[in-house]
Write a protein that binds this DNA or RNA. Structure first.
Lengths: 354, 354
DNA sequence: TTGAAAGCGGTACCAT
DNA sequence: ATGGTACCGCTTTCAA
């Protein structure tokens, strides 16, 4: 069923039917009702292509996600984020297009997206410290919002991000306040902008307390359970192990916790672990105290926000870039864990038999 | 830059330029090269709307995800799945549209999707035991592939699914083989088709071994850490606690493990926990043995498969439905845990002081 | 308040 | 091998 058929059926012109359906004021109410009823009855739905072609207005937002073989960004955080964004798009008549790009893809992809004329704006995911994508995007002129920030950016741009630096400063401060001096950081992949900021935050706290930075206590990689395990194991088995961990992801924290347990270190007693949920709320993995991963992380909310920002940028060309900084919520654990007395507990001596 | 401008520029007709770009054989090689070079130089990209309108061929696949307030299906499994699917779409010239629908949305959504003419097929996510969506879809006639199965379906349909029933039967059999008689199931949300099958699988094993089914040992809900904790806590504190758990998700298993620890039960010694990763590979949460959540779960592969199935269904109308059953891989743990001696360990007596 | 007709940017048929 | 032209289905002037 298309517009012409529908109009024939009603004995009206396409024009009138179109106007009635699109709520143009000049259509009489009785006609409009007749048209809308008929449209519903015959399950008429406009052809998006024709509509797009005629109006020239974009009807989709693309989420651009970089992927390479080692680095899989379609992760839980991302899922939450887009689920929030989608809702906004739907209620505004946009579709959401998911677009994976490879590291080597270059500007062509973005140009193509823009040239299609169906994409009105982009959300840029997983920015790196020096992301070259901004230059391409600015050149092309499609509105975009970055989920995260790009430290090396030359010009202002639209972004929504959490205050990673402050959050990690506070996490470190809390541990320092408990007496810890050897604090390890299990971070995200080096080069990712959020990881850079998190490390900076921790360094700030250490510097303010006059504590040295031990590079051996900083590790960064894709945030998997395995990475959390191996990085922690390596650090704990070294000569000068940490007494506390700050961990960039819930998943890695599971691995780290396992490593501690494997070495007989009880989190909350022999070792302190501050992890953060995807929303950067802190909590302790101390086993005894049930503290749960939030099901609906605020990340979803961020997706909603980002989408709204983008639609605003599309519909009303902004002079100043839109920027949203989200403060992390601090959820203190009930049990505190100062560093173990004098010498840190020895890991169980390996290979006693040999 | 559009086709007409490009053709003017080249002194050719639109027809020829179009043919050159779309690799029609009748264009001379020299012309084709000239056209393609010019297209690249001027960053020409065809308008998807015009192209779609002219060809009538769909250029997008929609992934339809049910959402309601209590039930958030945009989860890690889903993310992995679509990341696999997207790759297929991209290489076949399709876009991927994400479409969230609410439980009450009814057939209109599907009809609209189909009527748009830009959507060539659907992937249906998170099917329920008696999912009413199939009827709508069949009526509308758009090709679709279900990720999962629908037990109550009247007619054959395309699906890709794991063999949940067999996997859970085997899990229970393994525990029964160790001597367990009180096996608890922490399952997914009641009504979800996969949860139905998982429970059936466990019941089959119990029945085959002549063991009774204790309904108090079966719980099902959204698979969060909190649910895993609370369900396990409830069961363990009851008069006749289980000696083993089978858990439907990695995340819930974390909660269950915490509950056990809180009650002083060491997994692998006092209690047996078989969880499964998203790929249904089994493993034990026994603390001592590092076993990792797979980063790139096979689910991604399933997404790829589903996408390929759908494209096949779109491009060549099938007589028989396409159906892919994926067998779960069984990864045995190194340490086994028979049920504790005679009487199960008493949970610590609460409120001794009162 | 309604209608006729000219696009929007491609594709594909029919000529040449 | 190339070109002319009639569509595809909708919106939007312009006229009535």
């Amino acid at each position: 069923m298309n517009l012409r058929e529908l109009s024939k059926l009603l004995g009206l012109s396409q024009t009138t039917v179109s106007r009635a359906l699109n709520n143009y004021p000049e259509v009489s109410e009785v006609t409009r009702k007749r048209v809308k009823d008929a449209a519903r009855r015959h399950a008429y739905a406009p052809n998006r292509w024709a509509k797009g072609l005629a109006t020239g207005r974009p009807n989709a937002i693309a989420h651009v996600v970089p992927v390479d073989s080692t680095h899989e960004m379609v992760n839980p955080v991302f899922a939450d984020f887009i689920s929030g964004a989608i809702e906004v798009y739907t209620s505004h008549g946009y579709e959401m297009i998911l677009s994976l790009i490879r590291a080597g893809d270059g500007p062509r992809i973005y140009r193509d997206l823009a040239a299609r004329h169906s994409v009105g704006g982009l959300i840029v995911h997983a920015p790196m410290r020096d992301d070259t994508r901004l230059a391409m995007l600015d050149e092309i002129g499609t509105p975009y919002v970055v989920h995260g920030r790009i430290s090396g950016a030359r010009r202002p741009y639209n972004w929504i991000d959490m205050d990673n630096r402050r959050a990690y400063r506070r996490a470190a401060e809390e541990l320092i306040g408990l007496g810890h001096e050897r604090i390890a950081l299990i971070n995200g992949r080096a080069g990712m902008d959020f990881a850079v900021r998190r490390e900076e935050g921790m360094r700030e706290a250490l510097a303010a307390a006059g504590l040295p930075v031990d590079r051996a206590l900083i590790a960064g990689d894709e945030m998997t359970e395995q990475f959390g395990y191996e990085a922690a194991m390596r650090m704990l088995e070294a000569r000068r192990p940490p007494t506390a961990f700050i961990i960039s992801s819930l998943v890695s924290a599971i691995g780290t916790r396992r490593a501690c347990e494997a070495l007989g270190l009880k989190p909350g007693r022999d070792i302190s672990i501050i992890s953060h949920d995807d929303d950067l709320s802190y909590f302790r993995h101390d086993g005894a105290q049930p503290y749960f991963t939030s099901v609906r992380s605020p990340i979803r909310e961020h997706g909603t926000q980002a989408a709204l920002m983008l639609l605003r940028a599309i519909e009303t060309p902004q002079e100043a870039p839109l920027q949203t900084l989200i403060e992390a919520e601090l959820i203190p654990g009930r049990s505190t864990a100062p560093p173990p007395k004098s010498s840190p507990p020895e890991p169980p001596a390996p290979n006693l038999a040999s």
